[in-house]
Design a protein around this nucleic acid. Structure first.
Length: 548
RNA sequence: GUGCCCGUAGCUCAAUUGGAUAGAGCACCAGCCUUCUAAGCUGGGGGUUGUGGGUUCGAUCCCCGCCGGGCACGCCA
């Protein structure tokens, strides 16, 4: 394994360090991959870090460490460089070993066991059932699904959950909006609410409601109908996007099951609450919030913050000692509140919820551009662009790939023209094209996969071939890091680079050469590249087409 | 005004968590298809990392102050 090679190298350095500087033998030695090929395959900065405590010159120390390295079948050489880096160079066999490992592991290649099968709850989208999903939800769906897949690849037992806000005033608003449209369609006065929902879809729902014999005066029935209709619509949006949830948690159930009241009682018992101006407040400032928060309004109803806390208590109680929430950064204010609420409860129940529970990934807004102009409207939703609009126009693969291709905390400019382009450059097609090209070559070679897995790799001597093998070796490390940082964009960038190196190689060298052993070795290499492209694209929810 | 986030090539973005000469793609210029898919490849120019200090062997990264942008500051969600 590359991790075995890496730990092997660390072991060599550790042994050397024990001889050279016994007093620092316990130091942790880290290896990193240098940016420049001239700096070898692995680099170590331990000499610079220990120079000060040992009061030795870093270059001199590095030289001593190199001299003290035991012999190794993998290591081709070690050099001192720059201010005191130790650059390690691997033998070709050590690099090519990655190809064999990829072919042996197949779809499992890159997976690791860091999660140890522990449960983790990933909450995302969590849209109100008041309209079709917008592009912000799309970013969240793409991020959440990819993060979930990354965690699964590290052996976490992931539950994808959608928190359904079906209890608040926004639902009342929805019901009133639909009711007004229904009345209008009957030629009556609608009394459309001040802060109602104006989208065309409201009229459609009203018409459907009337068509199946609904009575506009029955607000509860209108409400049920509208919520069901929008829930169905959002499900279809998600289905079109290829995102599946394991569980939908209904906010309304927190009320019907008494969990909201229970949370209020528990918080009151915590001694962290007080009455003021006829309302019940929680001293969230004791836990880092910038002001205290109202739990129960003077009219007796609760603020949304209480069911939010109650909901997160259920996450913990359901056994999810790890949880990630993916949310728009416009909701960042809730982070401190929810955590404060959980901490206050923790003091009562003694359950010991960690201070940083749950973890958050906050993403910024998405701006959609077409022809250099910002697109703000959709036909059905009116005031915003829907995920469906985007999928219909540029395709699911492009939308998913694009939306995870940037760090979550940067504002996102979604260029429709770029996403649609099939003749210019488009990162999605670039990666998929590499996959399709390999499929084509393999089909012509009619090669047997098991034979290739056993192929002799020694004929692979070109720098491009060794570089490709090295790139494949990095994949497991990359996935572990991307999962740890909840950062699927790293996978997108990796795939872009891997595809780029493959395309270069493809143009420079012919795979189907007459020399049989070379041909087999090259087929094995590109088969391994194809496998990693597939594995990576699968994590992002993007297809890997055989033909393009 | 207060809090959080962001600021990197003309544009869109990376940068191995403090490492070596800050990298890709687009756009621009010049080349490559009678050989495995040209949705591809090769080469070229392009930077005071918003700015001023500080911390140290070393800062795009950490600390402080400014400038600019976004979001949030409700007994709304």
């Amino acid at each position: 394994m590359s991790t075995e090679i890496k730990s092997h190298l660390i072991d060599l350095l550790t042994q050397s360090l024990a001889r050279v500087a016994p007093q620092s033998a316990a130091s942790v030695i880290a290896l990193e991959r240098p940016k420049q090929a001239a700096h070898g395959d692995w680099a170590c900065n331990v000499a610079m870090q220990l120079a000060k405590p040992l009061k030795r010159n870093p270059r001199e120390l590095a030289q001593a460490l190199i001299a003290g390295l035991p012999a190794s079948p993998w290591l081709a050489g070690a050099e001192i460089a720059g201010p005191g880096f130790i650059n390690l160079r691997l033998k070709p066999e050590a690099k090519l070993d990655a190809v064999r490992r990829v072919l042996a592991a197949g779809a499992q290649y890159g997976r690791a066991g860091g999660g140890r099968g522990r449960p983790i709850l990933v909450e995302f989208v969590s849209a109100n059932p008041t309209g079709p999903l917008h592009v912000g939800h799309g970013r969240q769906a793409a991020l959440g699904d990819a993060i979930s897949a990354l965690l699964e690849a590290q052996n976490w037992k992931v539950t994808r959950e959608f928190y359904y806000n079906d209890a608040g005033v926004q639902i009342d608003n929805l019901a009133l909006s639909v009711q007004a449209r229904a009345r209008e369609q009957r030629g009556e006065t609608g009394n459309f609410p001040e802060s109602g929902y104006h989208g065309e879809y409201i009229r459609e729902i009203a018409a459907d409601y009337l068509a199946q014999g609904g009575d506009p005066a029955d607000l509860a029935a209108v409400r049920r109908f509208a919520v069901a209709a929008l829930r169905r619509e959002q499900d279809e949006d998600l289905k079109a996007f290829g995102v599946k949830f394991d569980n939908y948690y209904l906010e309304s159930s927190l009320y019907t099951e008494g969990k909201v009241e229970a949370t209020v009682s528990a918080l009151t018992a915590s001694g962290k609450t007080y009455e003021q101006d006829g309302a019940l407040w929680l001293r969230t400032t004791d836990y880092g919030d910038d002001k205290d928060r109202v739990m129960r309004k003077s009219d007796g109803s609760h603020t949304y913050f209480v069911p939010d806390v109650a909901y997160h208590v259920t996450k913990w109680q359901r056994g999810y000692t790890h949880a990630v929430n993916i949310q728009g950064s416009d909701h960042h204010g809730t982070v401190a509140r929810v955590r404060a609420g959980l901490q206050a409860l923790s003091t009562v129940t003694g359950v010991g919820i960690p201070r940083d529970y749950p973890a958050y990934v906050l993403h910024k807004m998405v701006t959609v551009m077409r022809g250099g102009e910002e697109v703000k409207l959709s036909k059905r939703a009116g005031s915003y662009v829907t995920v469906r609009d985007l999928i219909d126009e540029v395709g699911r693969d492009a939308v998913r790939f694009f939306l995870v291709s940037r760090k979550a905390d940067t504002e996102f400019v979604f260029d429709i023209d770029l996403a649609k382009s099939q003749t210019e450059d488009n990162p999605v097609y670039y990666v998929q094209y590499a996959h399709a090209r390999i499929c084509s070559v393999l089909a012509q070679a009619a090669a047997d996969a098991t034979a290739l897995a056993a192929a002799e790799l020694a004929p692979l001597v070109h720098p491009r071939e060794l570089a490709l093998a090295q790139r494949l070796a990095e994949f497991p490390e990359l996935l572990a890091e991307a999962a740890g940082d909840f950062a699927p964009h790293m996978v997108a960038f990796y795939l872009r680079e891997l595809a780029g190196e493959f395309h270069s190689y493809y143009n420079a060298e012919r795979v189907l050469v007459d020399d049989k052993s070379l041909r087999l070795a090259r087929l094995a290499l590109i088969l391994a590249v194809r496998q990693v492209l597939q594995n990576g694209l699968a994590l992002l929810g993007v297809s890997a087409p055989q033909k393009m």
